[in-house]
Design a protein around this nucleic acid. Sequence first.
DNA 1: TGACTCATGTCAGCATCCTGACATACGGTG
DNA 2: CACCGTATGTCAGGATGCTGACATGAGTCA
Lengths: 145, 145
Amino acid sequence: MSQDGVDLERSLGYLLKEASSALRAAMEEVLRPLGMTVTHYSCLELLAQRPGLSNSELARGAFVTRQSMNVLLQALERDGYVTRPAAPPAGKALPTRLTPRGRRSLEKASAAVRSVEVRMLAGLSGDDQSEAVRILRSMIQSLRA
Amino acid sequence: MSQDGVDLERSLGYLLKEASSALRAAMEEVLRPLGMTVTHYSCLELLAQRPGLSNSELARGAFVTRQSMNVLLQALERDGYVTRPAAPPAGKALPTRLTPRGRRSLEKASAAVRSVEVRMLAGLSGDDQSEAVRILRSMIQSLRA
DNA sequence: TGACTCATGTCAGCATCCTGACATACGGTG
DNA sequence: CACCGTATGTCAGGATGCTGACATGAGTCA
């Protein structure tokens, strides 16, 4: 290995990517024994917090395309984790809901993911966490503009 | 669109992913006119800061696999942006270096990316940025453990 | 010296995800 | 009403990236 970074360790953009990547890896690690992927979990978690989300809304929330989310939803529906009405109640959007089975499956995954987040925040005070939320929100808003 | 997040907006993990995703999208947007992808740029930037990095080291730094970085390096070498010795000076690692052409290409991209980072940090004070660096480093370290 | 471990570069095969496109449905505005 | 812009679900097609595996080179330790 070469010498460590000069500029890189000071670049917020790089640190952001690094942290996000490490978080995803840690999540994959704890979700794999449960036979679940990160997108899989994200979808269930989104549905638990906001029942009735459409395919497109779930895709945006899980940071994948509508097409990818659609194949995932078809699998989840086939296996009985979620339900969608046969016909759209309005427009074209199909509101999706968790089944009891989906809810049970989510509980285990949620506990696993929560443990990862706890570990991630181990060295941070409550104030630090509030600051982090504020700063990240500011970054997101500025980038969207 | 449904009601906005209850728990989601408070989850540091989610905000992290959201910020990272927004940053990547913004970078893709400014790099596309230059015919460059984010991984492409990351590779050049890494080489500018640490000349002589091997394929594997570049892959780790750009958060892709060795295999993916290898095909990128082959293209970059073919087009004259980087050079690698025909035979490894030691072991199997081939130290890679930027050519003048690669350096010129990087300059434009670097300016574009810097403008994105400036925009991202628009609403943040210097203290905020230092805090962000400290907090992100703590998260990364805790996750690696 | 020999056995073991680890890291590297590279090959093949495959899964994943995205780009592009289409028909449809809603909301506004003339 | 007719038109236009936007959003949705869905269908291929293709590019991109990853997993798995192998041989090689270097370092470690008995």
